[in-house]
Design a protein around this nucleic acid. Sequence first.
RNA 1: GGACACGUGGCCCAGCUGGAUAAGGCGGUGGCCUCCUAAGCCACAGAUCGCGGGUUCGAAUCCUGCCGUGUCCGCCA
Length: 570
Amino acid sequence: MDILRTIVEPSLESALTDIGVKGDFWKKVLDVSREKNQGDLSLPCFAFAKQLGRNPVDIATDLAASVSGEFDVSATGGYLNFKARSNWLAKNVMEIETSPGNRNVLIEHTSANPNGPFHVGRARNAILGDTLVRLNRLFGNDVRAEYYVDDMGKQVGVLAWALQNLSKKEVDEILDDEDSINPKWSGKKDHETVRWYQAAQNLRSKDGAEEIEKDIGKLVHASEHGDDSVLAQFEDAYKPVLDGMLETLSRLGIEFDTFTKESKFVVDGSVSSLMERLESLEIHGVADNGAHYLDLGQRGLKGKTDFFYRRGDGSSLYATRDIAYHMWKWTQCDDLVNILGEDHKLQAKQVGMTLIELGEKVPDVMFYAFIKLPEGKMSTRKGNVVFMDDLLEEAKAHAAAVVKELRSDLSDDEINIISEAVGVSAVRFNIVKVSPDKGFTFRWEDALSFEGESAPFVMYSHTRACSIARKVGRDSQPTTQGDVVPAMHELLRSMASYPDKLHTAVSENKPHIFALYMLELATAYNSFYRDCHVIVNGEVDEFNYAVSEKARELLRKGMEGVGIIPLESM
RNA sequence: GGACACGUGGCCCAGCUGGAUAAGGCGGUGGCCUCCUAAGCCACAGAUCGCGGGUUCGAAUCCUGCCGUGUCCGCCA
């Protein structure tokens, strides 16, 4: 409703000045009305009461008499309410354009260790991150989606060691087929190769694993010192796995612009020069064995205050490389956003504080809580997981069953396309619609729900609009005058808040705000569809058609923004 | 033990930079397809906003204590 605000504020400002209100704090108080039937924007006058020594009800009444413009004003119980006039609203809604953002944004998300297939928990990162990328693009920002590849350190080391030392037969024996792979995914490298990783982890947890531990330690050590041949061996190990993982993401509509390897910052020397710089900081300290740390307690960090960035043997730690990585990232964008699990909160805090210490900026971080299963925490090792590949298959199959029942007229090809789109969209939407800081429990019935607050609900409204356009068979006329019934006004009002919601979602890194808005928009369209027919007795109502077409455009763009596939028929 | 989150109808969830009668969905009950796709629409029932204090004209929202859940507290990544 910022479009209404632009015409309300000037008039309101002079009226407030006249009665003696100082400052412009009221601009923050002027907000979208909660009581929709009272108005579109409301100004609670309680805050002025004290300053002016007057009754808020009287203040509102007086203001109502002195404010005027192309909107309706009323006063009730200390609130001054502004309501947009329907035809004014229609005219302005028709002119809504996606905001011209001009920021250069780098969003790092997913960055999962390339050692096994995505499960729903790990995928929350990718889905949230990609949605943020899409929303920024929709907003007009120049966005780069980046995957930071963990190509060194223990996890990849274990994988590389296993691939080098274990045969398929040995792996099968070690795992005893307790969690054999779904035949459907045999040949998909993330599912195949994770068995080597699991087998190695299994061996490591047993007695007599000292030799193995030593071997892996050597590899890890070499990688952390930038040993070319070991890094190449690591890459050979993880690359096929990563490709398998990216295949899954691609099915979800998630792609990356750039991949940056962690080893880059060791190899190019930026990590060692960073460590030299850290050494000169006043909060720097050295432990007995020669390890280096920063005492972040001196800067207000609570809890554990020593932040180690360099081992006794002189090698760097993950966090150290992360700092070097951030300094590099800052050289190529205006805004930096990271998507991280809540388990990284302390680490991110330490990295952020160190960046400040170095005179750098701190990135925005969107933390998300973990997805649990009804049986408890998701764990690949305990077999308590839902793989994204399986979820997508299940969602598609479920969608196909629904489509077949509803649309007997469609061919198998058409059903296939629709059910894939519905399945993928539903899975994504089920995750983006909830606030990231809410720990949520994955339930099949929610993920596979195609009614109510779901992607298919939004998709369905869009196909209705498409169906109308198909029937009319031509573009709409730029008509902004016509009969405005309540359902029409409601839709116009909903459309009017499209720019506000997009702006909020992007600037606050809260994709769920826009996802929930899409539900609101679709709901408003459904009521409009019921009450405002475009085609009546073969005649086209130009005004209704113009509004329907604008709604269709906003639905389509918005759906792309939240990762819902805008089908024209379903 | 310490740090950081979260706790809203039977279930899920929005609102949390303080403002009107706490917004939706699922499930429940009852209606709507001679009318642009019923994956839809309409109505009804259902809420001590975890518990106790405090600040305020006003608290789901801010502060504080407690309870419950989650995460972290490695010279791992």
